Computed example of a mutant assay.
Amino acid sequence: MTDAPAAAAGLRERKKARTRIAIRDAAMRLFTEQGYASTTVEQIAEAAEVSPSTFFRYFPTKEDVVVADDYDPMILAAIRAQPAGMPVLEAVLQGMRQVFGSLTEDEWVSEKRRQDLFRTVPELRGRQLQAMVSAVDMLAGVMAERMGLPAGSAEVRGLAGAFVGVALAFLPPGRPGHFEEGDLDRVREALVGLRAHLEPLEG
């Protein structure tokens, strides 16, 4: 009997995850078929077989269907799971490598559609810039945990900002094509080179 509440909670979470995926899949299909601007929340809800109010429980706006990155929680969990003695930037890279390396072909197709929308829909570009700021906040939080420092410290935020900036040079939103195998290796190489240029500032 003691396992029943946990089982029920797990079932609810799986149902919520399926609903969220159904809404996003329906939205992406409609965006492809009839264009982003011509697609309404009501049409997405109908295609996903949910009510508009249910849509808004999962996505506050139509833009959020595209902007919200469902992989962020997975990346945070993977970074936290890296060995305690691993350097913080290596932990971030390894966490990202594990998450992206586990995606199915269908998940890659869905992510490519999402990135194509950033490239082709002007209304989404401003929201993507906001998402970049949120990415710095997210990484600063998990880096601070591993480094034993406040998330708002200059060292942590500077490190998180540097990582996001370097990553954008190789993984820009809306890049045609898809995530490539060597991208994270290039990010790592660039970070090593950046460190060499920053060393003269020490002291």
Rank of each mutant, 00 (worst) to 15 (best):
A8D: 12
V50I: 12
T39Y: 07
P5M: 10
V156R: 02
L93P: 04
L129M: 12
R186H: 10
R20P: 00
G152Q: 06
E63G: 09
M86F: 01
F118N: 05
R157Y: 09
R80C: 07
E199M: 10
K16N: 13
V109L: 14
R80T: 03
R29I: 08
G152P: 02
F163Q: 09
M74E: 15
G177C: 06
E90S: 11
M138H: 02
R18A: 15
M1R: 09
S102L: 07
L198G: 04
V92H: 01
D106L: 12
V142N: 07
V109C: 04
L129Y: 11
Q98W: 01
T54E: 14
D137Q: 08
D183T: 08
R12S: 12
S38R: 14
Q130L: 15
P176M: 06
G148T: 10
A27N: 06
A37T: 13
G182Q: 12
P176F: 10
E145N: 02
L11R: 15
P73I: 11
Q115H: 12
M28A: 13
M96D: 05
H197S: 09
A131T: 00
V99G: 06
P83Q: 07
D185A: 13
L201E: 03
F56P: 01
M132P: 04
R97W: 01
V99I: 15
R195K: 09
R127W: 15
A4M: 09
A196E: 15
L103K: 07
M132V: 13
L184I: 12
T19P: 00
S153Q: 04
I75E: 08
M1D: 13
D185V: 12
Y71R: 11
L93C: 08
T19V: 15
S102C: 04
P176L: 05
V67G: 00
I75H: 00
E155Y: 07
A17W: 07
T19W: 00
E90H: 10
E105V: 14
L159F: 04
L201N: 01
F179Q: 08
P73Y: 12
Q130V: 11
L30F: 08
E155I: 09
R97V: 01
